[in-house]
Amino acid sequence: MKLGLLIDLDTCVGCHGCATACKQWNTSGTIGPLSDSNPYGKDPDGAWLNRIRTYEVGDAPGSKTVHFPMSCLHCENADCVTVCPTGASYKREEDGIVLVDQDKCMGCNLCAWACPYGARELDRDQGVMKKCTLCVDRIYDQNLPEEERQPACVLTCPTSSRLFGDFDDPQSEVSIKARERGGRDLMPELGYEPTNKYLPPREKATVEMFEVDSSGDGFSLKGWVNKMIAR
């Protein structure tokens, strides 16, 4: 299996729902807690596994605003894994999920250096590296109702801009959508072969105009013929 996320840039409105869902699930999850420093003071900061950035593409007035959620892309060529000296970072053989064994990490940051996507954040309080787990502790939890065996961010997204699935299975929803809508890789030139794909904003919907002749004499009261319309 090659599990990952398909993220739809066409519909994401940047609500941060996935980011906070991720935070709350994972702070008590398998790699928890996710610490926050200075939470009520100056420059609050903490460990997040999923963040939303916003870009403006093109110049005004024709620019397009794009919300861009990013978490670990569970790359096939995950250099974050190969550089890790302790072996704490690894990519699971069975499903391709890239994880950090919290008990083995020494907090050297090297994996974060090796990740082009900013998907790894050191938890200063805990001294270990945190990253998206693809909610491994949800997706396999047989005690959760089946429809809830999904990453927290996917479950919560109000615009269904996040889909979870197996990219190895050509018939999975994520594979089909990625194929049909031209799912893209971020920084493909680096060769990390990310599993997560991004669907581009669609061509805008177009509607024809009602065909009218230029005269348009609707204002003329004299020319108005009332139809027989029953109340």
Partner: peptide, 30 residues
């Protein structure tokens, strides 16, 4: 007083550990 840091969790995490054997024997990332 407001805390200087928070590490919120409702239980101790159950770490998914990687075996030492895997660490020593596995090649690249996959």
């Amino acid at each position: 007083s407001s805390p200087e840091s928070i590490s919120y969790a409702t239980h101790n995490n159950v770490n998914l550990s990687r075996s030492n054997r895997d660490i020593l024997t596995r090649g690249g990332s996959r």
